[in-house]
Design a binder for these strands. Structure first.
Lengths: 123, 123
DNA sequence: CGATGATATATCGATTATCGATATAATGTT
DNA sequence: AACATTATATCGATAATCGATATATCATCG
């Protein structure tokens, strides 16, 4: 009963799930236009009513990792003044965004089913 | 903008989320009747079309932790033969199940919103 | 009746990533 | 001039999954 699951559902990897969520949040924040780190954090927080929030000790390592993996590309804003690293989606990141969105949505659907079952607790 | 969020939404804790999911899977599997570890693993796998799967190196530590936290209660099946530790929901576990189900569902709803936004990627 | 595979529980070490704390610096405001 | 906000960065502690491994029972089949 362990053949690759026949429904086409995606598998749940507990460790990777949170990481995937974080990366999706970043990719989604960049989907329209480039942004620097702090903007990404504010964008994510604003669009989720404060549910999702990046601590900067979390965000910047994620951005570095994603840049190393080629999902995003950062460029230091030229021109004097406050240094900002502006990130934009790469083609890889754009593909990853849609692929991961599908994958995660399947998992979320599975979780929803699980929750509905869990609600049917006999009093 | 960091006061306890006003919408009543639950906050997302990346680290704790996966753990919470695992615990919910166990609690949900026990909601009807007591089961031992191996049954829980099979139950979870069966009801999720193989999306969710417990490795035993993962499951048993979780069961031990949940028992230590009072969410479930294990009893070694008396009577000769193969030793089995049968777990059942405690009252605490039952309350936790419904509370956590609400909490996680809010987060899932937030993730769904995020995914919908992510899908509107300009071609 | 012996071998094999499924059932069943358990522990341990390696890995890895978040998180909090902390550092640095420029900018705007009073 | 002082202070809060904006902005990026690193580091160590923490914690939990995961794979590997160990042990033992039971059923089945040759």
């Amino acid at each position: 009963m362990s053949e690759t699951n026949p429904t086409g559902d995606q598998e749940f990897d507990a460790q990777g799930f949170a990481r995937g969520i974080h990366e999706l949040l970043v990719l989604a924040a960049l989907r329209e236009s480039p942004r620097h780190g702090y903007q990404i954090a504010l964008d994510v927080e604003a669009h989720s009513n404060g549910v999702f929030r990046f601590r900067h000790g979390t965000l910047y390592p994620i951005l570095h990792r994603m840049e190393a993996n080629g999902l995003i590309q950062g460029r230091w804003s030229s021109g004097g003044g406050r240094r900002r690293k502006v990130y934009s989606l790469t083609d890889i990141g754009r593909r990853h965004l849609s692929g991961e969105a599908d994958r995660v949505e399947d998992i979320l659907a599975g979780l929803m089913r699980m929750l509905r079952r869990a609600r049917e607790v006999p009093a």
